[in-house]
Design a protein around this nucleic acid. Sequence first.
RNA 1: GGCCACGUGGCGGAGUGGUGACGCAGCGGUCUGCAAAACCGCGUACCCCGGUUCAAUUCCGGGCGUGGCCUCCA
Length: 469
Amino acid sequence: MSLRLYNTLSRTKEDFAPLDPKNVRMYVCGPTVYDYAHIGNARPAIVFDVLFRLLRHLYGAGHVTYVRNITDVDDKINARAAERGISIRELTEETWRIYNDDVSALGCLPPSVTPRATEHIPEMIAMIETLIAGGHAYAAEGHVLFDVSSKADYGKLARRSLDDMIAGARVDVAPYKKGAMDFVLWKPSETGTPGWDSPWGRGRPGWHIECSAMAGKYLGETFDIHGGGIDLVFPHHENEVAQSECAHHGHPLARVWMHNGFLNVEGEKMSKSLGNFVTIREHLPANDAFGGRSWDGVTLRLAMLRSHYRQPIDWTVSGLVQAETILKRWKGVFRIVAVPRDSNESPPDAFLSALRDDLNIPRAVAEMHALADKGRHGDFDAAKGLYQAGKLLGINWDDVLSPQSASEVAQAVAALGDEDGSIAAAIAARKEARKAKNFAEADRIRDELLAQGIILKDGPDGTTWEIKR
RNA sequence: GGCCACGUGGCGGAGUGGUGACGCAGCGGUCUGCAAAACCGCGUACCCCGGUUCAAUUCCGGGCGUGGCCUCCA
């Protein structure tokens, strides 16, 4: 029952063995809270949520600690708050609340700890002092900088040498830096921007130090897994490694580094200038900004999980439609075979072994299709296995199995003004007509609904409806 | 320019030195008052050029293409 994970440090899949099986520890870089999270931000949230669930399954729910930070001090935050004329605190609170709602709609569990940068300034200052004392950092003009030349193996995670980086540098080097690649641990704050008193004057932390300080506080000097988007490998994670290892007597920061691939939208990089920038929220019911309609959180989740986490993913309307179709098909299995919703049995081995192979979720989903096929033919164990498998992936079966999905109801209300339940009334009228063998009238009602975009489906348990796609 | 990924059928997407994963779409059929759904059946894919090998989509080299990082962007 081994777990294999691809380690960015070694660029190979390795057998995973936690330092302490009673407390498996994972840190993932969380959001900078200044604006709605975009769909690319959803990827690490979902991917590492699945890993969290898998670790809980393998080691026990009480034996995994998952830390995901909140970056609530940042120049983008300052700029946005000023722009909107609200306080920084108001902005970060509001954005954090929205982020939580969004990732929760995507089926993500709350992490064990969600530390805020602004509540860990003393820890950061202490770490910076340690680095200065150890000869790894220096103060200059109100800044404190990390001296990369003080760490012989700087660049080992990203696999790039200092010489290459300096040669390829395209930015002017600040005059107070000793080395071109030295990075900021602490910087001065002018009046009006957030700042804290420190041995180097009033200032605020650099980007990387918060993760080192908070990871150290909640997970110890060395922990098991550190995750994030692949774009963070350099400089963010490389600098975290440098800071933490130098502050912790050379002890490694994380044993396994995991990075999710990037997301494109309809084949193009998502950007505001291309006009394809889309937030998580814009996909969800009551909004219709992606493909001109709304989508259920569980659909977004499955669409995200259909690609291997290290592969690039192309976020498309067609991909979401496919995910939605799959969920509809799985839903059908439980109309044939009812399974208990409360059992906590383990999913089948074939499914689990796919996940244990570096989180091969596409293969795990293929196993679910096999289970669904058997389930449709009345195999109770297979149907139950499908249910458990979905549960481990964080599929919200309650949403999937409701007669009409939230996105369908939202669209019906928006397009037809169905607040009064006119669809249900029409279905009842048609039922009477069919009972009286007045098929002409029954078909007329059905056609009328179809013209409004509602498809009726007669099943053994009565008639249900769907939005026509 | 430097470094790093990736390139699989109409579409999405695993995987492997040698029997065409899987899903969506499509086509044919069964069932149903008619539909929808469901069910059954149907597919000679691995960017190009060399090399290694009995055998390469899978390994090696080169090329082309796409994307990422080198600018506090997941």
